[in-house]
Amino acid sequence: MDAPRQPTNVTEHHRSPIEHETTSHSTDHADERYRIVTEQLSVYFDGKPAIRDVSMVIRTNKVTAIIGPSGCGKSTFLRALNRLHEIQPNARVSGRILLDGEDIMSMDATLVRRRIGMVFQKPNPFPAMSIFDNVVAGLRFNGVRKRSVLAEIAEEALRRAALWDEVKDRLRAPATSLSGGQQQRLCIARALAIEPEVLLMDEPTSALDPIATAKIEELIYELKRSYTIVVVTHNMQQAARVSDYTAFMYLGELVEFDKTRNIFTNPSKRQTEEYITGRFG
């Protein structure tokens, strides 16, 4: 690894996201709303920082990709966005995360997670449950009991996850009987069923074959019409294909954040350039 241990210019990250924005190229999107804003977000495990002072914006109905070498903190950042870090007792957070202007740390965690859904690296359907039960789990375990409502929402969610046609005749089959790619789309449907505003995806295709990956990428493109999507990926081609904005993280810090086009054609930081050209990571 020939990259320097620390980014050369750290002051960049301490500016507010708005300032950061104006210094970049994208003044043409000034009217876009920010769904999530993080302000100097740091996450510590046992007192050691995993990410430091990440200030970033997630734009409504856009796909934001987070790239960086493994261990750079991109998953930690993502998990902090819906407070999933809290299940690790040794985790601590500083800074703020605003969802539609409201600090999520002062909200009930379960309510935050209903508004910010998540899809994981490995497809993780609930074992011992049918396809149908998986899709409606979020509804059922949050108090929705009426079968007709559940059935209606399940179909809609499966359609939106582009899985309906493949499973409509076997909704009662165990979820584990599906292929890996189908399971991942099932997990997406499961997340969509509770109608989140934001969908976080943590390397959603890293466990899938190329054909299944293509399907998911297509789906991400479809979904951004209705949802705000943040996708963590170690696959730069994927980031370039699916995202509107890209953040590059390295050693727990946000190195560069810009429109995807700019990041991949004209990065302003040497580290970003080295990473996307494959010189490290």
Binding site: T110, R114, M118, K122, N124, F126, M129, N142, A191, I194
Partner: peptide, 28 residues
């Protein structure tokens, strides 16, 4: 697996419901 618990929590299901309805069910 831990990721089963995470999947439940990420759906905004309260932790105790995740344990009772999802984790226990997986282990039944």
């Amino acid at each position: 697996p831990q990721h089963i618990r995470e999947a439940g929590l990420a759906l905004g299901i309260p932790q105790w419901v995740v344990v009772l309805r999802i984790v226990l069910r997986a282990a039944v």
